[in-house]
């Protein structure tokens, strides 16, 4: 009996200790998660003139960008995400190369007037004006990267910030764009004001999120990068 009582006595403080540790861990978890939430949730920026100027100045000083990208297509009704990965190149004033490596090999070069596409079936070239989809995407990307979109009258623009990023939410005002997209969100790094992500939201809450990683700004990009060969 004595030994059993001793066991109980010894057991009590031990279990109480575990309980305190669990409570502390829960408290720590709650505090840290609320801090993360505070850091990541976006709040509206009231003084936008300086921020806009900083973003445009940075964009204008960017001659080229070379980075990896991850493109996520979120289809709400499918509960499905189609993820594509590849390398992105941008050269002022209007050269863009998207090189998709997964799930398919597909490269598209946009040079203002022409579109070159290379896939497993070879190389094809189109006039930008012949395909309204390419034209819209090209204009949207170029104007996002060179900052011109922030002065566009085709969008109502709101600015937000969190601990890591600024975000410009663009709401299309013209019907041609609003037929396709309900909003465009451009995310800028808070330190260097470079574009780190673009979110394109369509109707029915479907969206495309393009994240730019390992950005190299104003590095060396060979000229032939923007000229596809068979």
């Amino acid at each position: 009996m004595k030994s059993a009582n001793n066991k109980r006595k010894n057991c009590k403080p031990h279990s109480a200790g575990i309980l305190i540790r669990i409570q502390l861990a829960a408290l720590f978890f709650l505090l840290s998660s609320s801090m993360i939430a505070q850091n990541t949730s976006f709040q509206k920026v009231s003084k936008t003139i300086l921020l806009k100027q900083q973003i445009i100045t940075k964009a204008q000083s960017t001659k080229n960008i070379y980075c990896d990208f991850t493109q996520e297509k979120h289809l709400s009704m499918f509960k499905e995400v189609i993820t594509s990965k590849g390398i992105f190149y941008f050269q002022q004033p209007n050269l863009i190369r998207w090189q998709y490596n997964t799930p398919i090999s597909y490269t598209i070069v946009l040079n203002g007037k022409k579109v070159q596409i290379k896939d497993d079936n070879g190389l094809k070239e189109y006039d930008m004006s012949s395909n309204p989809i390419f034209k819209e995407i090209n204009n949207l990307l170029l104007n996002s990267l060179n900052g011109k979109i922030l002065n566009s009258k085709d969008f109502k623009i709101e600015y937000y910030k969190n601990h890591y990023e600024y975000m410009a939410r663009l709401l299309p005002q013209n019907t041609a764009m609003s037929d396709v997209l309900t909003s465009i969100e451009i995310y800028f790094n808070r330190i260097d004001f470079g574009v780190v992500a673009i979110k394109l939201t369509e109707d029915s809450d479907d969206f495309t999120l393009i994240k730019f990683n390992q950005r190299i700004i104003n590095g060396q990009i060979p000229d032939h990068t923007f000229k596809l060969r068979p």
Partner: peptide
């Protein structure tokens, strides 16, 4: 082209461009 078949025999499909436009 994403194809989803459900157990009751219905299908849902979506065509998305390589650059993400549905």
């Amino acid at each position: 082209l994403l194809i989803r078949k459900k157990p009751e025999g219905s299908y849902r499909i979506a065509l998305v461009t390589e650059m993400g436009l549905k």
